[in-house]
Design a protein around this nucleic acid. Structure first.
Lengths: 215, 215
DNA sequence: CCACAACCTGACCAACCGGTCAACGAAAAT
DNA sequence: ATTTTCGTTGACCGGTTGGTCAGGTTGTGG
C-alpha cells in the first residue's frame, strides 16, 4: 500500500522548501529581536530560541550576525520603497500625499519592528546602510521633491519646502511605529484599536493636507 | 566657635568639586556613547575612555551600567519637560504651539544625543522609565490636551484631535535629532547650517500652524 | 601631626558572546 | 547502491564584557 502521491504533489522541492522556511523563520525572529534589543543588545542565541532552531543552524544560513542584520535592514528598505507607488500614481497632491500618508501609516501598524530597526540603524549613524542613504534614498528623495515642486509650481498646493514636508511625512507616520510603546502607554496601556488607528490616520492627513493648503 | 555644619555643606570644597566634575564627565560621555551605540552596544570601557578616566573609576561613581544609563535617561527627561514652559505661557495657539515647536527644535539641535537615548529607550519598550511614562508624562499630556481643547472650544484653532497633534509635534521636532544622520546625508553629507536650520523650523511651524488653522 | 574618609586604579575573574568544527542523518544525483 | 550534497547540531574556543577588590594616594577634620 504506497502512500498517496497527491501529498507529495504539494512539495516542489523539499530542500529549497526547508531553506526558504528556515530563512523566513530566522529573519522574522531576527527582526523582532533587533527591534527590541538593538544590534548590540541582540544575541544570536535569543534569535535562535525565538526561531526555534539551534544557534549553530543560524550560522549555517547566515554567516555572521552582521550579515543577518544586513538582510533584515534590506527587507525593511524594500517595504519602505513600496509605499512610494501611491505617490506617483496620483496627479494631485491631495490624493498623492494623502495616499502616501495612509500607506505609511498602514506599514507602521503592520510592520512596527522593521521601522524600529531602521530607526535604530540610522540613529547609530547608519553603519550598515550608509551606501543606501547616499544612493537609493537620495535619488528617491530628489525625485519626490521634483514631483512636489511641480505641484507647487502648478499652484496645486502651498509653497512649502518640499524637503521638509517629506521629513515631516516620514517623522509623523513612522512615529506611530517607533514610539508605539509610548503611544500605547498614553492610551491606558492598550494598543490602538482599529477605530483609534483610523482616527490617527485622519488626524495626520487632515493637519498636513490643510497645512499645505489642499483642503 | 563651633564650625557650623552648614558651612561645610554649602562651601564647594575640593572633594565635592571632584565628585561633581567627574560625574559630569562620565554622564556626558555616557550620553554620547549610549546614543551612538545603544545600551547593549555601549561598553563601560568606551565610556571611560571618552571621559578620560579608568574604567574602575566609573564603577566608583555608578555602581552598575544600568544605574549610569538610568541617570542619563533621567537627565534627558527633565530637559524635555523644560520645553513645556513656552506652552502654558501663551494665551493663543499661534504663539503657544509655535513657541513649543521652536523650543523643541532648538533642543533637538543642542542636545541630539539625549533625544536619541530617549528614542532608543522607548523603542525597546521603556524598561527603565516605564513609570515615568505612566505618571509624569501621562499627566503632562493630559494637561496639554486640555489646553489645546480649550483653544478649540474657544474657536481659536481648527477642531483637530489634540492628542494626535501632540504626537505630531513630538515626531516632527525630534525627527531632526533622532534622524539627524539621515538628514545630514541627504544634505550632501554636511550638517545643517544655521540658515538651513531656521528654514526647517519655519517649514515645520508653517505647515503645522496652517494645518490647525491659526495662520 | 595624625587618623580617618574619600578617591583612585591596575589587575583580575566569572559569565557570556559570536563564531567554528567535526560528526552525523537525510535527500538527490549518479 | 553508492556517492555527493545539503541540512543539523552539541561541544567547544578565543575574545570581550560588566563588575570586583586589594592596596595605594589624596584631601580633611581634629
Amino acid at each position: 500500500m504506497p502512500p498517496p502521491a497527491q501529498i507529495s504533489i504539494i512539495k516542489p522541492g523539499k530542500r529549497t522548501d526547508i531553506r526558504r522556511e528556515n530563512e523566513r523563520l530566522i529573519l522574522d525572529a531576527a527582526e523582532r529581536v533587533f527591534a527590541e534589543a538593538g544590534f548590540g543588545g541582540a544575541t544570536m542565541q535569543l534569535i535562535a530560541d525565538m526561531a526555534g532552531l539551534p544557534k549553530a543552524n543560524l550560522h549555517y544560513y547566515f554567516a555572521t550576525k552582521e550579515d543577518l542584520y544586513r538582510r533584515v535592514v534590506r527587507n525593511i528598505f524594500e517595504i519602505w520603497l513600496e509605499a512610494a507607488a501611491c505617490f506617483d500614481a496620483s496627479p494631485d497632491p491631495a490624493t498623492g500625499i494623502g495616499g502616501y500618508i495612509d500607506a505609511k501609516m498602514d506599514i507602521s501598524r503592520r510592520n512596527p519592528h522593521g521601522s524600529k530597526v531602521w530607526a535604530s540603524e540610522v540613529m547609530h549613524g547608519a553603519p550598515v546602510i550608509q551606501d543606501y542613504l547616499e544612493t537609493t534614498l537620495r535619488d528617491w528623495t530628489t525625485g519626490r521633491i521634483a514631483v512636489i515642486q511641480g505641484w507647487i509650481d502648478a499652484g496645486q498646493m502651498a509653497a512649502v519646502d518640499p524637503r521638509h514636508l517629506l521629513y515631516m511625512l516620514w517623522a509623523t507616520t513612522q512615529h506611530y511605529a517607533d514610539f508605539g510603546h509610548q503611544i500605547d502607554t498614553l492610551n491606558g496601556g492598550a494598543a490602538l484599536s482599529d477605530a483609534q488607528w483610523e482616527a490617527a490616520k485622519t488626524s495626520v492627513r487632515q493637519i498636513i493636507l490643510r497645512g499645505i493648503g489642499v483642503i
